[in-house]
Design a protein around this nucleic acid. Structure first.
Lengths: 205, 205
DNA sequence: GTCTATATTCCGATAGAC
DNA sequence: GTCTATCGGAATATAGAC
């Protein structure tokens, strides 16, 4: 009884430590020793629980990858009006990136270096239903409710503005001369500004 | 005479090889053997010319980092009208990223993992004159020529939409189901669409 | 300058005591 | 399950012949 509890706690501590180290250093830059130190246990125990570095990495990758497309399906499949979906999308994304700021660089870095394995790991067999978003945009255009735009370009515009600032954070802090607190305020402001700008660009005069 | 020529060519081949390998694999993922193979020479020669892996990396990083802020100073310092600057900025950035698509992930990845050393390496002591852009935007707002916006948010909006698609390429190709040719067309289209959208969002009714 | 061979360091993985 | 000690391979770096 007590033993099981301790084991579980060790395993959980390893997972938390591995997540932190892999996210910040990447697969190649991470050391098993770093993870062991972070978890407060011995290197050998990592292998006891997860057999190899690759296995441990895969476990972490699968676990965090799903947060990179947070609730996208849910949002796209909801019956909400387009502008509501855009607002919710931005809010959801920016909030998720605030909680896991290393995530985009980690996922896209590994996806670029290992494109073949990436696809299956992140998406399994289910892709997010982009076509639903595309169809809705086309419908609104046909109805004359918004200006004619390329739906996919629009989606990438939104995604770019929500995610990129977190990836460019060190550059941004230096070039613009802002500190961490100001960065947080800057990001918080974007939750409103990004959807406002997108929606403004879609509206007819 | 001949010797010098051969030496120079070896050194140049090493630099080209190192650039390719470091950009695609990062510092941690790159192997000296990979670089030697790519350059068609022996591992020992890398150390003869550049002493260590770190030194070689630093050489490459300094050389490519400047392309990450392509002609930004030049554009900001030009006397052009704001909308012209925005168009030129987008055109310049997207063109640069087309030529070196690995660059943003490489620079921002290394910048995140090694923030302390990054700043000096990329910028030296000279930051791009963001304040000029900010001042010009504020001036246009005061004159009533554009809607009131936060200049820095605007700048990040533009930068995000120009750079992010290249970083998200593998995801984009899979989720949207497009191939390399279609991606190129998609990107080419953005050279027009991004400044159009930005400018549209700035115009008063 | 360029190579082969080797030294050195580092790191993932395992063996075995407790 | 957890530890210490160690193995074995891989990667950086150097020595030395040509």
């Amino acid at each position: 009884m007590v033993k099981v509890k301790i084991d579980e706690r060790a395993e959980q501590r390893i997972l938390a430590a591995a997540k932190k180290i892999f996210l910040s250093k990447g697969l190649d830059g991470a050391r098993m020793q770093d993870i062991a130190d972070e978890a407060g246990i011995n290197k050998a125990l990592l292998h006891y629980y997860f057999r190899s570095k690759d296995k441990l990495f895969e476990t972490i990758f699968m676990e965090v990858a799903k947060h990179f497309l947070p609730r996208v399906s849910e949002i796209f499949e909801s019956g909400k009006p387009l502008f509501d979906k855009i607002e919710l999308f931005c809010e959801t994304y920016i909030q998720q990136m605030k909680e896991t700021p290393y995530l985009p660089l980690f996922i896209l870095g590994e996806a670029t270096r290992r494109p073949e394995t990436f696809v299956k790991k992140v998406f399994g067999n289910r892709k997010p239903p982009v076509h639903l978003f595309v169809a809705q945009v086309q419908q609104e255009i046909k109805s004359g409710n918004i200006k004619p735009v390329h739906p996919l370009q629009l989606l990438i515009d939104i995604l770019s503005m929500c995610v990129f600032p977190f990836m460019a954070r060190p550059m941004l802090e230096h070039v613009a001369g802002i500190n961490k607190k100001q960065f947080d305020a800057f990001i918080e402001e974007r939750k409103k500004l990004v959807p406002e700008m997108i929606i403004a660009s879609l509206k007819n005069n």
